[in-house]
Design a protein around this nucleic acid. Structure first.
Length: 205
DNA sequence: CAATAGATCATCT
DNA sequence: GATGATCTATTGC
């Protein structure tokens, strides 16, 4: 199973995981955020396990991009489930969301932190990081840089293709903790952040 | 350790 | 023209 100081070969990773079909993503954002914990994001030769997520709801969630309605930027949120919603923020960071619900219903999950699993050397280079592997992808902007995920992946399906999310054939055991979301100024108290309790790769405060 | 400043630009008012 | 689902470096105690 995953071990932060013992990265796996991509070929073994592919054998121990399986694709998530589109129906897996077709559920409310809160449920999807919880279900995505321990799943594996793969892009090119790099991969990481999801250990922290946040759910963003629809029109009544003022912290959600979708609350302002469908625009050129947010249209993927209103599309079918199982797609990537990637946005650019603060003039320098890309953030990855997984679209849930169903067509016409916004609701997505922000991927906030990964445990690096494969392609660590490449991640160190891209991040120009000189620390422990736990700090390679423990933040929404850090993981996209580590896995080289950008707006080029906007709207892409995640069940297959160049950017995929897979589930373990034998799911690891862990506890989930729920807290308010981080870095927002609306709906500040809503308990929509889900973490693998005690995991060393969680984002900083 | 904690707090803060600065980077930097797409999107929306 | 202001703001933002962030990160890093730097300052200060």
């Amino acid at each position: 199973m995953p071990a932060i100081e013992d990265p796996i070969l991509m070929r073994d990773l592919l054998r121990e995981t399986e694709p998530l079909a589109i129906p897996f993503f077709e559920r409310p954002a809160q449920d999807l955020a919880r279900a995505l914990l321990s799943c594996v994001v793969i892009h090119g030769d790099t991969a990481g396990m999801i250990v922290e997520t946040e759910a963003y709801l629809g029109l009544h969630d003022l912290a959600a991009h979708a609350s302002r309605g469908k625009t050129e930027r947010t249209k993927a949120l209103f599309g079918p489930a199982g797609r990537a919603y990637v946005y650019f923020i603060y003039g320098m960071h890309e953030c990855l969301n997984v679209v849930g619900e169903r067509e016409g219903e916004p609701g997505s999950v922000l991927i906030r932190a990964l445990e690096p699993l494969a392609g660590l050397t490449q991640m160190y280079e891209r991040r120009r990081w000189k620390g422990r592997a736990t700090g390679l992808a423990n933040g929404p902007g850090k993981l996209t840089q580590a896995l080289n995920i950008t707006r080029k992946q906007y709207g892409q399906r995640l069940d297959r293709g160049e950017l995929t999310i897979r589930g373990w054939r034998r799911k690891p055991a862990f506890h989930v903790a729920v807290t308010p979301r981080i870095g927002i100024s609306e709906a500040v108290d809503w308990p929509l952040r889900f973490v693998w309790a005690g995991h060393p790769c969680l984002s900083k405060r």
